[in-house]
């Protein structure tokens, strides 16, 4: 489904919706982005699982018995396949950011601004109960922006070092040593960051525990929108263009 189709469809829907007082739903991730995310998630998990298998201590491996060698071979193949998938989806993402309207909007909303620093301080004050209300976040808050930056840097480093290791014979051994070290260390950093920052943010926060399905449906309801992204909500509601893009029907009709 192309981007244009989605907006057209959603436009139709929002028109219908404005007539009745049915609850409003907002698009957080469109279909294209959800597919990108899904490929990235799967390849990330496969990469982490098959990658850290290298570091499992030998005594722990005994339970595999005679299957060890097969497991190792499969591990290597899967790791390379998942790595390739991740690089392709990342490359596509850059294409998406530049050549698609939704991508450009994403990039624009993701740009760091001085406002983010203010919001960060405000939020910290809210956490320690100096301020009574959280800051009014736009589409992407400082949390998302930090994470997105880390994701780009991390994926870049992992891809580059991974490709160097894949073609090990062409390089100076020193380069390979550096690549191996960075690949391992960055992997640890990425996994810990994903678990602590991303997993907590989207799935483990008390009101979302044990899991949120936004990454599958791509939409959130009006209450959550008001709560989490009040500024974005206001912008959408006041701008008919944005309403066309972001307003949608309920989750069931989304399919």
């Amino acid at each position: 489904m192309s981007h244009n189709e989605i907006t057209m469809e959603q436009g139709k829907m929002s028109k219908e919706k404005e007539q009745g007082d049915t609850p409003l739903y907002f698009v957080r991730l469109n279909f294209n982005e959800r597919v990108q995310h899904m490929i990235f998630v799967v390849s990330f998990i496969v990469l982490a699982a098959t990658g850290f298998m290298v570091w499992i201590p030998e005594t722990t491996l005994d339970f595999l018995g005679g299957a060890k060698e097969t497991v190792f071979t499969v591990r290597g193949v899967l790791h390379r396949m998942a790595g390739t998938a991740m690089i392709i989806v990342s490359a596509y993402h850059f294409y998406y950011l530049i050549f698609k309207r939704a991508g450009r909007r994403w990039l624009f909303d993701m740009m760091p601004r001085p406002k983010d620093i203010k919001e960060f301080i405000h939020n910290m004050l809210y956490y320690i109960e100096v301020k009574e209300h959280p800051p009014e976040f736009d589409r992407f808050s400082y949390k998302h922006k930090m994470e997105y930056l880390a994701l780009i840097v991390g994926t870049g480093l992992m891809s580059a070092s991974g490709l160097i290791l894949w073609a090990e014979s062409f390089w100076d051994k020193f380069i390979i040593d550096i690549a191996a070290l960075i690949h391992g260390m960055e992997a640890v950093l990425a996994c810990l960051a994903v678990m602590v920052w991303h997993m907590y943010e989207v799935h483990l926060r008390p009101h979302k525990f044990p899991g949120d399905n936004m990454w599958l449906t791509g939409i959130i309801d009006e209450a959550e929108m008001k709560e989490e992204y009040p500024l974005h909500y206001k912008r959408i509601m006041s701008d008919p263009k944005l309403r066309k893009i972001y307003l949608t029907k309920g989750p069931k009709q989304d399919e």
Binding site: F52, W55, P57, T59, T60, G184, M185, V188, C191, L192, M195, V196, M199, L204, F209, P210
Partner: peptide, 29 residues
Amino acid sequence: IKVIYLLPFFVFGLWLLGLVYFPGFDLNA
């Protein structure tokens, strides 16, 4: 249930931290 759900993340995270800060340490040994 919460503990069972979250424990793997904790253990995995601790293992990773161990690898970075105590590379020579082998629990089994």
